[in-house]
Every structure is written in C-alpha cells, then in structure tokens.
Amino acid sequence: MKISEIVKGLSLEVKSANVNLEKEVTGGYVSDLLSDVIANCKEGNIWITLQTHQNIIAVAALRELSGIILVNGKLPNADTLKKANEEGILLMASSLPAFEIVGRLYNLGIRCR
C-alpha cells in the first residue's frame, strides 16, 4: 500500500516538506524505544511513536523506514522537523493515540513485517 493512501485513510497531517508519498509501506511498527526500533523495524515500515526527539529521524534514515507517525497530537520540535527535511524523512502527525492508529492501519491490511 502506498503512503498516500494511508495519509488519506487515517487523515494524517504531513509535517515534512518535499517527500515522496508514492512509497510503498511494507509493514508497521509501534514503539517509543529507539533501540527497539533499530533492532526490530524493517525497511519500508511505517513507525508509530510519540517520541518527538530529533533522534527519531536518524533512526528512520538508518532503517530506511517509509515514514513516522507521531501520535497523541504530538508535534515535532524545530530540530526534528529540520532534520526530517534534510534527510527526506516523511513525518506525519495525528491527534489519535497509538492504539487507535495501529488498529486502523491493521484494518487497512498493514501488518507487522
């Protein structure tokens, strides 16, 4: 499934600029622990978290994730957004909590792979 369909289906707010919304999402991962994401997330996964620290961008770039969804109405701080734009990482936001976002992604057919 393409990112653009997820953005639309879950009414996500796209935060970063100049990003490719046509990327394929290979699966989903939800975690707030960076070491866990580094160890277990797979390439092309969409990552759901409430961490807004700029380190999330480095993790997403390292694991070549398809995007990050910030939950609970969290907004990226200026450093994080700047880094996302520099690295071309797709940063999205939602007011919904993680459980709800994951549930809806799961319903769209996105699995943990």
Binding site: Y29, V30, S31, N40, A98, F99, G103, R111
Partner: peptide, 10 residues
C-alpha cells in the same frame, strides 16, 4: 509485536 497485538485487539 506491540503492533500485531494492538491490531488484533482492534
């Protein structure tokens, strides 16, 4: 995983 757990319960 947490993702799979949330998805299944949802």
């Amino acid at each position: 995983s947490k993702y799979e757990s949330c998805g299944r319960l949802y």
